[in-house]
Amino acid sequence: MQGHLFTRYHLPSLACALSTSTFQFTTSGHCLRENEVALSMVSYTLIKHTHVFAAVLSITLFILRASLDLSRNTAWRQTPLRWIPHVNDTVLLSAAIALVVIGSWNPAIYHWLAVKIALVFGYIIAGFFALKQSTTQRTRIIAIVLAIVQAALIFYLAINKPSL
């Protein structure tokens, strides 16, 4: 009970100091009980795996749709392949936001994250032009290459998290 009293009055360091065996600090300085830490880690891991899966699925679906377009097979535009990537990308974005919130990651501090966010916007713009039917074939190929390069850089930053 002591931990709840102290955390309510914003004294997590005192609560943790008094009960080091049952409390731990989070990256944002909050104090959690051991079971809350375990639940938080399970949630983070589940969300991270969801994010990684959705990211791989997103680039796979993009390459599939771009390949079908380049081969002049536009029938996919009348199938669920037209809307499934949007659902997947919503899951991807939701998981990304949850990871940033849970991990207390600030793009102003973690510069790799700021670059990753900028690359995501670039990937979306390149993907838009790559799949736009009224765009010339040459522009579409350039956009596809740009989107894939940006996706590769996003994956690199996500895996390595370099200090920039």
Rank of each mutant, 00 (worst) to 15 (best):
S43R: 01
P80Y: 13
V101G: 01
I117F: 07
P107T: 10
I117M: 10
Q2V: 12
M1A: 15
R138F: 07
S13T: 07
F128N: 14
D69V: 00
Y9A: 15
H10Q: 13
R140H: 05
L57A: 15
A54Q: 02
P107M: 13
A17T: 07
H86I: 15
H51Y: 04
W105N: 06
P85I: 14
T20L: 01
R33H: 10
P85K: 08
P85H: 11
A118K: 10
E36V: 06
M1T: 05
A96S: 13
R65K: 05
H111D: 01
F25W: 12
I117N: 03
T20C: 03
S58Y: 02
A118Y: 14
H51P: 00
C31M: 11
K132W: 07
F25D: 09
Y9G: 08
F155N: 02
V100S: 05
F6G: 03
V42E: 08
G122M: 04
S71G: 05
D69I: 00
A66T: 03
D69L: 05
Y44S: 09
A96C: 06
V91R: 09
F53Q: 02
K48D: 12
H86K: 01
L153P: 00
P107V: 12
I109H: 10
L113V: 10
L113I: 11
I144D: 10
A66F: 06
I117R: 02
V87C: 09
L153W: 06
A126H: 02
Y156D: 11
C16T: 11
A38T: 14
D69Y: 04
I159A: 15
T22N: 11
Q2N: 10
F155D: 08
T20H: 13
D89R: 01
F62E: 07
H49C: 01
L93S: 14
H10G: 06
S28T: 11
R82F: 00
F129I: 03
S28R: 15
S40K: 03
L93V: 14
E34R: 12
I47C: 04
V120Q: 09
F23C: 11
K48P: 00
P85T: 14
M41A: 14
G29C: 12
G127E: 06
L92P: 00
L119R: 09
V56G: 12
P85G: 13
V37L: 12
T27Q: 12
Q137V: 10
E34W: 06
H86Y: 13
A151T: 03
L119D: 07
G29I: 14
T22S: 14
R82Y: 04
V91P: 01
A114M: 08
R65N: 08
L113F: 13
H111A: 10
V52S: 04
V52I: 15
T136Y: 06
S21D: 15
A114Q: 07
D69C: 00
L157Y: 06
Q2A: 11
A114G: 04
N106C: 09
S13P: 00
L64Q: 04
K116R: 12
L146M: 13
Q78P: 01
I154S: 06
V115L: 13
R138N: 05
T79H: 01
W83H: 09
T20D: 15
A38M: 08
T20K: 13
L146P: 02
A118E: 13
A151Q: 00
A126I: 05
Q2I: 14
G127T: 08
L157C: 07
T79G: 03
I102D: 15
F53G: 01
A96G: 11
W76A: 12
V100W: 04
